[in-house]
Design a binder for these strands. Structure first.
Length: 355
DNA sequence: AACGTATGCAACCGCCACTGG
DNA sequence: ACCAGTGGCGGTTGCATACGT
C-alpha cells in the first residue's frame, strides 16, 4: 500500500504568512495529539496547509522551547566558531545553541555575522584574513598587506605540520612549552575552568578560555587576570591606550565607541566597549608587527595567535599537554582535537549541551 | 510627505537519505 | 531490489519594515 503524497499538488493550499488563527489550530492540535504524521496533520487539525508547511511553522516558531530575539555575544561567538568548524551545517549548530532553531541561526549568520566578518577583513567562507585589496577600506593597503603576510605564514605553517605528520613513524611524548605569558594564562584558565565533561572535546574549552583571555586583555576590571594589563603598542612607535570616549556606535544594542585611531595608516581602527563590559575591535587591527604589553612581557600578535594554535592543536590536557615528536625530535602529531569535535558533532544527539 | 533602497526574517523550494511496502 | 512516501536540511525568495534622500 502506497502512502499519500507529502504535499498534494492538485489541491490548492494556503501559502504565505500564518495567521493567529492558524497558529492556534496547529498548536492546539499538536498539544493534544502530538504531530504524528505531518502530511496527515493539516486535515486533522482543520488547516488548509501543506504538512511540510505545518512542520516548519511548528519547529521554527510555535514550539515552546524556542528563545526568540537578539543573539547574545556568547551565542554569536559560538556560531562563528561552529561555522568555522562545520560550515553550513545549521542543524548541527542549532543542537549546540539551546533554544535556537537552525533557520534562526542561518538567518543571523547571513544577515549579521557574515557581513561583520567581511567588514573586518575576514573571509566568511574560509574564516581567514581576506587578501584581496578590495576587501579593505580605502587607504589601508598596509592592513591588507600585513594580513596577507600572516595568512601566507599560517598557510606555510600548516603545510609544514602536515608534512611532518606524513613523515612521522614513531612518536614520543614531550611537554609543551607555553610560548608567552598569554599562552600560560590561557592554559591556566583552561585548567581552572575545565569541566571535564565526558565526550566534550578539550578544544571547545580552549576556544572559550581564549575568548575570555582576549576579552579580558581590554577589560577595565580585570578581576581574574590579576596584574595583567595591556597597552597595545603599534609599529610606528606610538602607544595608544584606549581612550573612553565618544558617542555610541551601535545605537541598537548599546555598544559604546572608543576613540578612533587618528594615526595615518591605521585607518578606522576602533575599540568597542559593549554594554556587557566586553571589548573588541571594530576593525580588527591584528597586525603582525603589533605587540601587546602583557604583564612584563611584550607579546607579538603573531605569537598570540601561535599560542592559540598550539593550544588547539596540541592540547589534550591543560598544562600537561604533550606534543609528539619523532626520533629526531621533530614535533609531528598529537591527537588532533578537531577530529574529536567533528566526531562529537556527527554523533551528538539533538539537544546535547556541548556548549 | 513621498519615494526609493536596504535590511531582516518567515516561509517556500528542491534535494537527499532513510524507511517501509 | 525497487520505488514512493516521509522527514529533514540548506539555499533562496518575497514581503514587511526601517532608513535615507
Amino acid at each position: 500500500m502506497r502512502r499519500s503524497p507529502n504535499c498534494k499538488k492538485d489541491v490548492v493550499l494556503k501559502r504565505g504568512p500564518w495567521t493567529a488563527e492558524e497558529d492556534k489550530l496547529l498548536t492546539a492540535y499538536i498539544q493534544q495529539h502530538g504531530h504524528g504524521s505531518w502530511p496527515a496533520l493539516p486535515e486533522k487539525a482543520g488547516l488548509q496547509r501543506c504538512g511540510k508547511s505545518c512542520r516548519l511553522r511548528w519547529i521554527n516558531y510555535l514550539r515552546r522551547d524556542i528563545k526568540r530575539g537578539k543573539f547574545s555575544l556568547q551565542e554569536e561567538q559560538t556560531i562563528i566558531q561552529l561555522r568555522a568548524l562545520l560550515g553550513n551545517r545549521w542543524s548541527v549548530m542549532a543542537a549546540h545553541l539551546p533554544k535556537r532553531t537552525d533557520n534562526e541561526i542561518k538567518n543571523h549568520w547571513n544577515t549579521h555575522l557574515k557581513k561583520r566578518l567581511i567588514k573586518i577583513g575576514v573571509d566568511p567562507i574560509t574564516h581567514k584574513p581576506r587578501t584581496d585589496a578590495s576587501s579593505f577600506p580605502s587607504g589601508s593597503g598596509k592592513y591588507a598587506s600585513n594580513l596577507s603576510h600572516m595568512a601566507q605564514r599560517e598557510s606555510a605553517r600548516l603545510e609544514a605540520e602536515a608534512r611532518l605528520v606524513r613523515e612521522s613513524k614513531q612518536v614520543v611524548p614531550k611537554p609543551i612549552q607555553p610560548k608567552n605569558q598569554l599562552t600560560r594564562l590561557l592554559l591556566t584558565r583552561l585548567s581552572n575552568n575545565s569541566t571535564a565533561t565526558p565526550g566534550r572535546p578539550m578544544c571547545l574549552d580552549v576556544l572559550k578560555a581564549w575568548q575570555g583571555v582576549i576579552a579580558g586583555m581590554f577589560a577595565f576590571s580585570s578581576q581574574d587576570l590579576g596584574s595583567l594589563t595591556s597597552t597595545p603598542s603599534f609599529p610606528d612607535g606610538t602607544v595608544r591606550a584606549p581612550i573612553i570616549g565618544l558617542t555610541a556606535t551601535g545605537s541598537t544594542d548599546g555598544e559604546m565607541g572608543f576613540d578612533k585611531s587618528t594615526s595615518a595608516g591605521w585607518g578606522e581602527t576602533a575599540m568597542e566597549l559593549h554594554s556587557n563590559g566586553r571589548t573588541g575591535f571594530s576593525n580588527d587591527a591584528w597586525f603582525e608587527d603589533s605587540v601587546f604589553d602583557v604583564g612584563n612581557e611584550n607579546v607579538a600578535i603573531a605569537n598570540i595567535m601561535e599560542g592559540l594554535s598550539d593550544a588547539l592543536i596540541f592540547n589534550s590536557d591543560p598544562l600537561t599537554a604533550v606534543e609528539k615528536s619523532n626520533e629526531s625530535g621533530n614535533i609531528v602529531e598529537n591527537s588532533n582535537c578537531w577530529d574529536s569535535v567533528l566526531n562529537l558533532v556527527n554523533s551528538s544527539p539533538y539537544g546535547s549541551p556541548v556548549f
